[in-house]
């Protein structure tokens, strides 16, 4: 089987994979990084979003061999170096931006990609950017609020009542 080498969350990794092995399979099955979730088979739900050379991608729609030599960041690489929650992760907790947690890794990765491109996104920009991440629990209210908060914007007026 062909060998693939890449950097995942700052660590050089390699493994033997099949041609059909998806990046999501490689992360989950070969590296044990099960934070990247697979929620659909049509490239729609976004639970598997990771960063590939800095850009958000759906790991279920990239072949592992196509990530040869790439830098990959997954949800497991998002905490602060001391192990505490990163700014976006903390905002999701503070604003109850997750319930069952299944879509959460993809949401956080998409939010991180957005904030890299756009440091102070509007509500509409956040909603548009999260178009490819489906959440069934939260109604997105607290996710959008968390992303606004993570970008340093005041969310006190988006009180629930």
């Amino acid at each position: 089987m062909p060998k693939v080498t890449m950097t995942v969350n700052g660590m050089a990794v390699s493994g033997e994979v099949e041609g059909r092995t998806l990046l999501s399979d490689f992360l989950r099955d070969d590296l044990g990084l099960t934070g990247t979730h697979v929620g659909c088979d049509t490239s729609q739900c976004g639970a598997c979003v990771v960063h590939l050379d800095g850009a958000p991608v759906k790991a279920c729609s990239v072949f592992a061999l196509d990530a040869e030599g790439a830098k990959v960041t997954t949800i497991e690489g998002m905490a602060n170096p001391d192990g505490s929650l990163g700014v976006i992760q903390k905002a999701f907790q503070d604003h109850h931006g997750l319930q069952c947690g299944f879509c959460t890794p993809g949401m956080v990765m998409s939010a991180a990609a957005l904030l890299k491109e756009n440091r102070k996104p509007t509500e509409a920009e956040i909603r548009a950017y999260l178009d490819g991440n489906i959440c069934r629990c939260t109604g997105y209210h607290n996710i959008v609020k968390a992303v606004l908060a993570a970008s340093g914007q005041d969310v006190s007026r988006i009180a629930a009542e």
Partner: peptide, 22 residues
């Protein structure tokens, strides 16, 4: 039979909600 035809609500389909339980 897939998300290509079953329309799940996405972030841009919904507003912020006003909820009250006082």
């Amino acid at each position: 039979a897939s998300y290509m035809d079953y329309a799940m609500p996405r972030a841009d389909d919904l507003p912020f909600f006003r909820v009250d339980h006082s």
